[in-house]
Amino acid sequence: MHHHVMEAVLGAAAALAVPVALIGLAGEPASGRDAAVTVEIPAAAIDYQLPGEFLADGRPAAAPSEVRAVDAFRIMKQQVSLADYGECVDDGACQPAAARPGQVDVPVTGVNWLDAHAYARWYSAATGQSWRLPTALELAVASAERFVGDSYSAIADDPSNPAIRWLRQYREEVAANRAPDPEPKRRGHFGSNSLGMDDFGGNVWEWTSTCYERVTLDPVDGSVRGAIENCGVYVMEGQHRTYMSSFVRDGKSGGCAVGTPPDHLGFRLVREEPAFIAKVKSALQRGLTSMFSGTGKG
């Protein structure tokens, strides 16, 4: 089972314990802790370039794009801050981050996938809500016009000479010529996208719950024939898509073999709308809509 599906199921189960009385009309459950500001990402269907490595006829192929739909969801407006992460560390539920810049209102960086996952569990307990890492698809939808995905095609330019692709990719990465940006920035520094989500594509790459996989494509129609998933490695999104081992805290020591590696690794979380609550909320909204529009038949 995909990890994020597992998380979603666990999240839904946990949320059943939240008394319905605490749910406001806007669907914001109360909690013992001020939860992070989120932005609502409307349901969308996007042309999505699949993450992973693709082979057709035994040769590297370009990542295929497919139309993928997601329901509406809420995601943190900002990346998890160093201060918020520090509370989890103080509670003994998170490992200290590897990067400890002087300022506090900066995104936490120097965190690996396991740290991000541990934080989500702690944060869910602390807020009484259900939080998890976004899937790569959710991050693609939420980052909207800032989404980049894979910058370079992995396609074998010349089946008889693998070096042509290696040299092309090297030159493309060199031409992109991204200067490293190691200085931590205050949250909000890189501004909001059209959906109100801050800082995506700045100098912090974000963990997702999507595993790396190697996919075999049908050489004729390009359909997926099979895939080997490796959930020791996760998709990260940011200025470009990259893949990192779950224990890596420093982008320079994992991922991109050539080209400029991620400056920093961080994350933000999606607030899971449990199926039960979503149903109640949707019913309430339907009822309200009916009342105000006068078209209710109820």
Binding site: A163, L167, R214, S253
Partner: peptide, 28 residues
């Protein structure tokens, strides 16, 4: 890798299958 002692050569030319070939691509 960690301290910096890496350089790159970019070499153009024809691939020699006799010297090396991926006989079977990665798969299950």
């Amino acid at each position: 890798v960690e301290l910096g002692a890496t350089a790159h050569f970019l070499v153009e030319g024809d691939w020699n299958d006799d010297l090396m070939k991926q006989v079977e691509a990665p798969g299950p």
